[in-house]
């Protein structure tokens, strides 16, 4: 088996004495779509924060492409080839849709210490950006400021920005949360498409999508991994069923 793209070994983190994640082991093979599921408050977003470097780990190690990134700042990890979308959209209110994506494209292409050329008319940035904007279906909203976007559009823009840096590893934090059925289906289709191109770690509550798309699933409950495996195995796993019985989701 080839070297895993991402590896978390015994990773733990507590916030003011409360252990939010403990002994997390997670291995992502290159090319797989790995789903991370679990009830609200299980620590899924915190795991993504630790992978991207927004939250420091208390213990354990994180390897990405064979590099120990445990103590690397977020920007260095991003440059190694990871990108994420945020559960609560983290957008730049005064930027338009197109400007968001162009900025993300810019992040992946060389130095941004350029002081003269107008980025708004730089085809090297705007053409790839326009392509990605169209791909997520926001082409007719390209000139609209983020502050005035609808919820679903913000979710799509989050994904467009993550894609624009051309990452090897895509971390998606509940991309479908709060979307209507139509947008949900659309997004599921998009994730399915992306699956062919990149390695994805998908945090999602929509079990239908998760079981349809994931190659493997890891279940997190109260900060611990209770199961990892193929969807069939997870579906029939006793501990998973217990954890979810009466919970917000049913399998």
């Amino acid at each position: 088996m080839s070297r895993p793209l991402l590896q978390l070994a015994d990773v733990g983190r507590s916030f003011s004495g409360l252990q939010v994640c403990r002994d997390i082991g997670l291995v992502l093979a290159a090319g797989e779509l790995h789903a991370l599921i679990g009830p609200n408050g299980a620590g899924k977003s915190t795991v993504l924060d630790m992978i991207t470097g927004l939250t420091a780990v208390d213990r354990g190690r994180i390897l990405f492409k064979g590099c120990d990134v445990t103590r690397m700042p977020p920007y260095a990890r991003a440059r190694l080839g990871m990108a994420r979308s945020f559960q609560a959209s983290a957008l730049l209110d005064s930027f338009t849709v197109q400007e968001h994506v162009a900025l993300a494209v810019q992040a992946g292409r060389g130095s941004s210490y350029r002081f003269w050329r107008r980025s708004g008319s730089d085809p090297e940035l705007q053409e790839p950006a326009a392509e990605i904007v169209a791909r997520v279906g926001l082409a007719d909203r390209a000139g609209v400021r983020a502050a005035t976007l609808a919820h679903g559009e913000r979710r799509l823009l989050e994904i467009a920005m993550a894609l624009a840096t051309r990452p090897d590893l895509l971390l998606l934090d509940e991309p479908m949360a709060g979307l209507g059925p139509v947008s949900c289906r659309r997004l599921a289709g998009m994730v399915r498409e992306l699956k062919a191109e990149r390695t994805i770690l998908l945090v999602e509550h929509d079990m239908e999508t998760v079981f349809a798309l994931a190659d493997r699933i890891t279940v997190l409950v109260q900060g611990r991994v209770v199961a990892t495996g193929r969807p069939e195995a997870i579906r029939s796993n006793r501990r998973v069923q217990e954890a979810y019985l009466g919970g917000p989701c049913s399998l």
């Binding site: 927004l54 990108a83 730049l92 209110d93």
Partner: peptide, 21 residues
Amino acid sequence: ARFGRVLVGCRENEKRLQVLG
């Protein structure tokens, strides 16, 4: 220019820009 887009981006949400790289 590119520099300014990053600068203005920092005003709006610096963490987000770090995660972009």
